[in-house]
Nucleic acid binder design. Sequence first.
RNA 1: GGCGGCGUAGCCAAGUGGUCUAAGGCGAAGGUCUGCAAAACCUUUAUUCGUCGGUUCGAAUCCGACCGCCGCCUCCA
Length: 470
Amino acid sequence: MMKIYNTLTKKKEEFIPVNPPNVGIYVCGPTVYDYFHIGNARSFVMADIIQRYMRYKGYKVKFVMNLTDVDDKIIKKANEEGVDAKEIAERFSEAFFEDIEKLKVRRADVYPKATEHIAEIVDLIKKLEKKGIAYRTNGDVFYDVLKFDGYGKLSGKKLDELESGARVEVNEKKHNPLDFALWKSAKPDEPHWESPWGEGRPGWHIECSAMSMKHLGESFDIHAGGHDLIFPHHENEIAQSEGATGKPFVKYWIHFGFLNIRDEKMSKSLGNFFTAREILKKYPAETIRLLFSQTHYASPLNFSEELLNSVNKGLEKITNFYQTINGLINQTDESAGYPQFDVQKFYHAFEAAMDDDFNTPKAVAVIYDFIKEANKLISGEKNYSKNFYADILKFMDKTAEGVLGIVQKEKVSQSDTPEKVDELLDLLIKTRLEAKKSKNYQLADMIRDELNKLGYILQDTKDGTIIKRK
RNA sequence: GGCGGCGUAGCCAAGUGGUCUAAGGCGAAGGUCUGCAAAACCUUUAUUCGUCGGUUCGAAUCCGACCGCCGCCUCCA
């Protein structure tokens, strides 16, 4: 049984899809005005792990991540550079896709863009207006929060408490300070579209309501995003969607904890951020994914270079193990036996961890336990059968790589090396073994050192010499 | 001011009523294997879970107070 902590109910609940085996997941994606930072990356990677695990469990997942491509920030950036807002949006959309691919984030099934859903957005606002939940002032349309009973149910806020808060925007066009814009009238030099309320552009919150319901239906399973989106963004999405349809909008709300720097939230406005691309220049994607996996998705994660380095060491252990098994599977002879080793036990432990609200730190611990137990056998006197090594690789491929994405597959030599090179490497290894036999260690070490310079690591094991890639 | 969260070893981090004399990773110390490496293995590294009280046969886990830190209430993953 899979359990998910639901922000809406503030409880861990059994996961029962609205329409099994289908699962609809919507994650708030980027506003494409700049490169995303490593804190944003955390949300993208954790959402990726969630959808990968859902697929692992056999659910038919439809994963949707929106791109906000019309927004104040984009317009501001465009004005600063003296270019079209569209150009900014396109440039950083492209960068976004490059970066998530490097992070090994599986492609979403749909990446809806706000500018391509203006018709749906307008329809939704019309519905709200018809129901008397939205009102217009000049060319703007606002949502009337007092008209929706459930307002505040996600964030646990009460209307009167919010109103007394000191930081609510004052705007005399609004009936209530908490009312938010559904449609903004066009200002000069801003992107705009035709609408029943005149030319303008959509507010931020309405985009997500319109796009998620278009691609996943009026009621769907999971909606995820950063903790900072609970209020007002997700609260407003509920108000808009349920206000318009009268149906429950989302069954499970998942929120990701922040990535902090020295205990402070990483953010563009504080300036304490690293972009994902600059971190990716120094560390492999797997290190970043392992770092995120080692903390529960909802907890804050204090980011630092030292932490990244220590996680990188942990990754080396996983990579080494995977390389070793790939080397051994080619060395062993068919006659060797299958050891006392219960792979199934590890699958169960992995699933138990992931089923419990995606407890990735525990799942990672299972992977390490698995590696330790397998290494223990390998370091013994006996040789083992190909089946044994194949089962190990299968486990690593399905769990560590398939769900968490923390195996550096490209570092396995034979998978991407042309045959000729393999044959030449074999020849060198044989030569080196001969040299070792005649105690010509100078020659043996020279071969090893020179190959090392070319990116191949030779290691002597009881079953023979294996090759790893740097 | 309102609402919410967090505090576990040198560091990161699971665990949320008995299996906890607390998982896993990094680090540190010693050992094994090896021609040397590398990798790996073995042993050690929290009788204790911010502090003080309480509930209970039993608490890191529940309750209360206090201390410290953070977030949301404005755009933000």
